[in-house]
Simulated assay, not measured.
Amino acid sequence: MTLRTTFLGTGGAVPTTRRAPSAVMVNREGERFLFDCGEGTQRQMMRFNTGFDVGHVFLSHLHGDHILGLPGLLQTWDFQDRTDSLAIHGPPGSRRQLRDLIGAGGHDTAFPVRIHEVTPGSVALEGEAFEIRAFETEHRTTSQGYALIEDDRKGRFKREKAEEELGVPPGPAYGKLHAGESVELDDGRVIEPEQVVGDPRPGRSLVYTGDTRPVDATVEVADEPDLLIHDATFDDEMAGRARSTGHATAREAGKIAQRAGAERLALTHISSRYPGDARGHQREAAGVFDGECFVAEDGKTVEIPFPDDE
């Protein structure tokens, strides 16, 4: 069951030849979600072969490096004769500005575009066996992050115990027990689901912060996320600049990941002040975070397995 993240843009406000502005594609079971849409996102989608059939776009805030890719992407979808509706989710108070942005070129899409203002702490999208929840972040404007959190899965069915110890015959009874129904055997015994089904197993989760200072809400929104994608615009030498501009350093991102119990940490929104590699960011975050830590690069793809499949 696929849960795949592709980093389309990992740069800060000023793009470089190596990093495009912010955009992250998430593919869950073939359903694609786009988190932020910086300039040139549609080209990055083509370049990294993520597919174009996105149903929902989630915007962390309305700074240009996170939204200026929208008009071009929507026009491209129109030229491709798209008919499916698109839902754009943004922070409170964003609907009018987004409408103005989409219509700035005088182009009206032939397909429906719905804009939803999402309040932090609420569910932006409730899907089948998952939800995408907004949480409050701290930037220089109204901003929020998003967490994709899957439901717990059923426990494993203990076939050997059911058949050999309890004498449950293979067949429909197994399905009923796994679905939570009790089963009466021919000899009159009643087998309860908890006798042959293990404890629920956790689903997967990922957290995307957008631009932010370190905040408690990032720690609280998901229980030990499998992947935390966190603002790491600056290194330690620019900590003052990070505070004044509403961003985080790599070390601060590492501390948040450690507190959250994250499995992996992706450092993103790397400032153009670091035109070469950003290995220093990785070293600073890894100094305070025990899990896997990496600097996200444009085109990098991360598969998120179920915890018990690793």
Results as ranks from 00 to 15, higher is better:
262 A>N: 13
269 H>W: 01
251 R>M: 10
240 G>S: 14
257 A>E: 15
270 I>E: 12
227 L>R: 12
261 G>V: 06
239 A>E: 01
244 S>W: 00
245 T>P: 00
247 H>P: 01
262 A>T: 08
245 T>G: 05
269 H>M: 03
255 K>M: 06
247 H>A: 10
277 D>W: 12
278 A>Y: 14
234 F>E: 04
244 S>H: 01
246 G>A: 05
266 A>L: 10
274 Y>I: 14
242 A>N: 01
277 D>Y: 10
238 M>G: 08
246 G>N: 10
230 H>F: 13
272 S>D: 14
246 G>D: 04
259 R>G: 12
231 D>M: 00
235 D>E: 09
245 T>Y: 00
234 F>Q: 04
247 H>R: 06
249 T>L: 02
236 D>A: 10
253 A>W: 08
254 G>R: 01
270 I>N: 14
267 L>K: 02
257 A>Q: 11
240 G>T: 10
229 I>R: 10
250 A>G: 03
233 T>P: 00
277 D>K: 11
275 P>W: 08
276 G>S: 08
237 E>T: 13
265 L>Y: 10
231 D>L: 00
228 L>N: 12
234 F>R: 03
258 Q>C: 09
263 E>Q: 10
232 A>L: 11
240 G>R: 09
262 A>H: 15
268 T>N: 09
276 G>L: 11
268 T>P: 05
237 E>L: 15
243 R>Y: 00
257 A>Y: 12
241 R>L: 04
227 L>S: 13
255 K>W: 03
229 I>A: 14
248 A>H: 15
269 H>Q: 03
238 M>F: 09
234 F>S: 02
247 H>M: 05
238 M>K: 06
278 A>N: 08
253 A>C: 07
240 G>V: 06
250 A>E: 02
240 G>K: 10
271 S>C: 02
278 A>F: 13
249 T>C: 02
231 D>E: 03
247 H>D: 09
245 T>D: 03
228 L>F: 09
256 I>Q: 08
238 M>C: 13
244 S>A: 15
241 R>A: 07
259 R>C: 09
233 T>K: 03
240 G>M: 13
254 G>L: 02
264 R>C: 04
261 G>L: 11
227 L>D: 06
254 G>S: 02
257 A>K: 11
254 G>W: 01
263 E>K: 10
266 A>V: 07
267 L>D: 04
233 T>A: 07
258 Q>Y: 09
236 D>C: 07
254 G>N: 02
261 G>H: 13
231 D>N: 03
246 G>H: 11
236 D>S: 04
277 D>V: 12
245 T>Q: 03
238 M>T: 04
240 G>D: 09
250 A>N: 01
252 E>T: 04
260 A>M: 14
240 G>Q: 12
247 H>S: 11
226 D>P: 14
256 I>K: 07
246 G>Y: 08
250 A>V: 04
234 F>N: 02
257 A>T: 11
266 A>E: 14
277 D>P: 06
231 D>A: 02
230 H>C: 09
226 D>E: 09
274 Y>P: 01
269 H>D: 03
273 R>K: 11
234 F>M: 05
234 F>P: 00
275 P>L: 11
258 Q>D: 07
256 I>Y: 05
